[in-house]
Nucleic acid binder design. Structure first.
Lengths: 79, 79
DNA sequence: CGATGCATAGTCCATTTTCGACTATTCGAT
DNA sequence: ATCGAATAGTCGAAAATGGACTATGCATCG
């Protein structure tokens, strides 16, 4: 697990990921299909068992109809 | 290596990382100290041998005096 | 209640990645 | 040619990864 995980910032980020998905009314399976991964993968990311690299994050945001930059600045404010 | 690496988007990102560091007049060693990593680590990231997760990316940008969100939206335009 | 169905969590494990200490290379300056 | 700074690259042990598969949770229905 990366050094940067298990921090307050990550926790916030993960919370956001889940919330955004739910807001869109998507299941992990739905999202998985959109970004061409497995439900297992989504679950692991959302629970912080795996990490997201920058570009995966951007893909993820696009799949949820969000602008990655907006999300980043949003998170930055809270941390 | 991650699926998402070795793509045009990553190449752009990495180019940016290097350019930003040089613009600031920093060596890999300097940056390494700022983010508490080794020079080896910086080198590997910049050459795409390792990937950067979202939060590491943010730290990196802060160490270079940039707003992560700005950089993301900048990159998004080009890809 | 028991059964069925969906959403998510969690296991397993072969494979890939990661990290940093250390070494090699590159290159400009003298 | 030598020195020195900056970066690239090697190595190997340790950790992370991914996806197939299984388990659990939790409604809802007959």
């Amino acid at each position: 697990m990366a050094k940067s995980m298990h921090t307050a910032a990550w926790a916030k980020l993960l919370e956001q990921l889940v919330e955004m998905r739910l807001t869109r009314g998507l299941t992990q399976q739905d999202l998985a299909e959109r970004i061409e991964r497995t439900q297992s993968f989504i679950s692991k990311i959302e629970r912080g068992e795996r990490r997201l690299d920058v570009l995966e994050f951007c893909e993820w945001m696009h799949a949820l109809g969000h602008d990655p930059a907006d999300v980043i600045s949003l998170l930055a404010k809270e941390v």
